[in-house]
Simulated assay, not measured.
Amino acid sequence: MSDRFVAISGCSGGGKSSLLAELTARGCQIVEEPGRRIVRQELAAGGSALPWVDAAAFARRAVEVALADLAAADALPGWVFFDRGLIDAACALEQATGEPAGQTLGVGRHYNARAFLAPPWPEIYVQDPERRHGFEAALIEYDRLLKAYPALGYEVVLLPRASVAARADFVLGMLAP
């Protein structure tokens, strides 16, 4: 685990991608969400490890991808922000199979003790080819994550509903020594 690794999670459609794009523009390192990468690959290949087809297979792949992302991130300098990541994948696996997230994660934290969660923001929520679930499903997922992160030893910091620049300032300010 590295304190340089920061999880950005929360409600689908809550503005995480915009925040991460702003952090990238400011020179921060970003690791793209495993789920979206898997969905793109599965759709292109006609595969079935999709959350709306085989949630367990999708979640297992997400865990694998997130673990590989963590290993690769060791070589990156400075702050490394993860769009979702291993915690979200382990929670998805627990939801799909009943396998406890803590068991999947093992001992210790994988990210900085502070995890940033985007709260529900219905005014900006949109569906797309990779996000087929509706806002109600996003709320259920958010509630699960809001409980899971603290249960797994993380301090949850809710992102403000603010401009993208203000959100980035907020995150970087919270991480400043």
Rank of each mutant, 00 (worst) to 15 (best):
V53W: 03
V53T: 06
V53F: 04
V53Y: 02
A55R: 10
A55M: 11
A56P: 03
A57G: 12
A57F: 03
F58G: 01
F58D: 02
F58R: 03
F58Q: 00
A59R: 00
A62R: 01
A62M: 11
V63D: 00
E64C: 14
E64V: 11
E64F: 11
E64Q: 13
V65Q: 07
V65S: 01
V65W: 03
V65C: 10
A66W: 02
A66R: 03
L67E: 13
D69E: 13
D69Q: 12
D69I: 02
L70W: 06
L70V: 13
A71P: 08
A71R: 12
A71H: 05
A72P: 01
A72D: 11
A72I: 05
A72Q: 11
A73C: 13
A73H: 08
A73E: 08
A73F: 11
A73R: 13
A73D: 08
A73Y: 09
A73S: 13
D74F: 15
A75S: 14
A75Y: 04
A75I: 08
L76A: 10
G78M: 15
G78H: 11
W79A: 07
W79G: 03
F81N: 01
F81T: 02
F81V: 00
F81E: 03
F82T: 00
F82W: 01
F82M: 08
F82N: 01
D83E: 10
R84C: 09
R84T: 10
R84Y: 05
G85A: 12
G85W: 00
G85F: 05
L86D: 00
L86M: 06
L86C: 05
I87R: 02
I87Q: 06
D88F: 07
D88L: 11
A89N: 06
A90G: 01
C91H: 07
C91G: 11
A92F: 10
L93N: 01
E94I: 04
Q95W: 13
Q95I: 14
A96W: 04
A96D: 08
T97V: 10
G98F: 07
G98C: 09
E99S: 12
P100Y: 13
A101H: 00
A101G: 03
A101S: 07
A101D: 04
A101W: 02
G102M: 13
Q103K: 15
Q103V: 15
T104P: 04
T104E: 06
L105N: 01
L105Q: 02
L105S: 00
G106D: 04
V107R: 15
G108D: 07
G108W: 06
G108C: 13
R109V: 10
R109H: 09
H110K: 09
H110D: 08
Y111I: 08
Y111Q: 03
Y111D: 04
N112T: 12
N112E: 13
A113H: 12
A113R: 15
A113S: 15
R114G: 09
L117T: 03
A118I: 05
A118P: 08
P119G: 12
P119A: 14
P119Y: 08
